[in-house]
Design a protein around this nucleic acid. Structure first.
Ligand SMILES: [Zn+2]
Ligand SMILES: [Zn+2]
Ligand SMILES: [Zn+2]
Ligand SMILES: [Zn+2]
Lengths: 133, 133
DNA sequence: TCAGTGATGTTATAATATAACATGACTGTT
DNA sequence: AACAGTCATGTTATATTATAACATCACTGA
């Protein structure tokens, strides 16, 4: 792993939510990262190798939470609109069903995106509490 | 439906692939649409009402292909990287499995995104043909 | 020494999306 | 008619996300 990749990857591992490329740029300015391209290049490599995932719904990036996604199963993300936390899961049933849905139509899948946005359990109770006042 | 919404919706219905907001802007300049905001406002309404879907993977928009998505089931898009066509499906099994995956964790889902990118059947055969030369 | 390769750095620019403010059209009420 | 309320519209400026183009540097193996 190169210098810049290490910096970006460490930052993402420490973060508790998806970061945008420019979030990363700002956070790493004093570590020698000065231009967007340095971040995007590192991200491209990390994503390619499965260490990091791009979250399409928020134009952000997270470190993989499942043993570097060695497995080939599709990742499912639950994204809280309030606390912004992202949780990664896999599900064999969804994966195989999606696979056959493509096969039925002769579609050769290269990449699959499954993202659910909404309110996580914590933020729901927090909101209920506020409403009680 | 307002004037601008109608213009944008008709254009999307006629298109055979997802269009970006700026694609739409360019196409409708001579119909009186002059600024990005006019497009984005129309799109927001159309998406809210289910007549149009946003495709996160390509930052584009398509008209709903399934009776205006009156049904509550999640839409599944297959996106060809080559011809750029987008096809919309639903699948009861995936929808319910995804639902329970959220329920198990107390997650209150607001929006679900399922997108598969790759090569459609047509473009695969086209590519094979080319390789034979 | 030298060519080849991949990482880096830098500047400029493209593509996508929203903020802020002003105006216009319509509705129902007084 | 006069007025307030609401929603659609228009316009300018700006924020956010992503890539193009070009120059340089560090390492590796002839
Ligand atoms: Zn993963
Ligand atoms: Zn939350
Ligand atoms: Zn639909
Ligand atoms: Zn195709």
């Amino acid at each position: 792993m190169t210098q810049n990749e290490t910096l970006v990857y460490q930052l993402l591992c420490d973060a508790d939510r998806p970061l945008s490329a420019y979030n990363i740029l700002d956070a790493l300015r004093d570590k020698g990262i000065r231009a967007p391209l340095q971040v995007y290049r590192a991200l491209a490599k990390l994503v390619e190798r499965g260490a990091v995932h791009r979250i399409e719904s928020v134009n952000g990036f997270v470190a993989c939470q499942l043993h570097d996604c060695g497995g080939s199963e599709v990742s499912i993300f639950m994204l809280c609109n309030q606390c912004e936390r992202a949780n990664e899961f896999t599900d064999t049933s969804i994966d195989s069903r999606l696979q056959s849905l493509g096969n039925d139509r002769g579609f050769q899948a290269a990449h699959k995106v499954i993202e659910i946005t909404g309110l996580c359990a914590d933020c729901q109770t927090a909101q209920t509490t506020v409403q009680k006042h």
